[in-house]
Amino acid sequence: MKKESNLQKILKEGHFAVTAEAGPPRGCDPEIMYKKAGILKGYVDAVNVTDNQTAIVRMSSLAACSLVQQSGVEPILQMVVRDRNRIALQSDVLGAAALGITNMMCLSGDHQCFGNQPGAMGVFDLDSIQLIAAVKKMRDESKILGGDELTSAPQMFIGAAANPFADPLPFRVTRLAKKVKAGAGFIQTQCIYNLARFKEFMKMVTDQGLDRKVYILAGITPLKSAGMAKYMARKVAGMDIPEEIIRRMEGVPKADQPKEGISICLETIAALKKISGVSGIHIMAIEWEEAVPEIVSAAGLMNRGAGSV
């Protein structure tokens, strides 16, 4: 099955890419995924479908990707290494390719202690970098880990995550380089609120020439309320929300906070566009997909030579 990723094509052509995120429901109703995809359709180039995010049991990412695709939106299959061993992971890559899925994100996954199954065994048979390398091997050499031949090779545009706000900072760039070396074609970053630190990170990335080897999509999450900002700053691992952002959200009445969150988001996008090495943005509007069309339109990203499948 040779089907090219639309996201890859857009990035290759040098357009500013926009991706978003759609979390599968805690149930089996397909309509929810159709609805989320419907909201995003026409505004973004591809949509990440999360894999049991924060270790909470949800509809499988692969199945939800298929539903998104049926709605006419290109999915990006997120795969975490927390729950499946190398047999299951490689098998799912083949299954995804067979369903016509052409993008995937290789992730470690939030630790199982955070979710609703704290008694689960953490598999972590491969780490995210080893998964990237495994998928690349499947795609480029038509071989699985251990060297056995596949009867046909999956076409996958391989993505990975980078967190410029986790520590230690210099090693974050080394790790990004490792992901590129392993075979990542695009990177989506953790949500950016601390622009100064992100610029510092991107400077190191461009100094090493990594931006010429991989497309970097900068992560954005619109804040819906001051409460959400405080919660994320305190509770979400690897999240960096400066005090001034929290104060700014608190400074407006509760009813106006979503609007303020979107304003912050738009200012961030404008700043990101000017940072060398940034190829696009990844909007993670957590359980707030309706905000995406507004952000994309207001950011002037509607006519960028992009479009959905």
Binding site: S108, D110, H111, D127, S128, I129, Q130, A161, A162, N163, F165, A166, D167, P168, F171, R175, K178, Q190, A237, G238
Partner: peptide, 8 residues
């Protein structure tokens, strides 16, 4: 090939 993004 760590650390993961949760190291702070």
């Amino acid at each position: 090939n760590g650390p993961c993004g949760g190291s702070q």
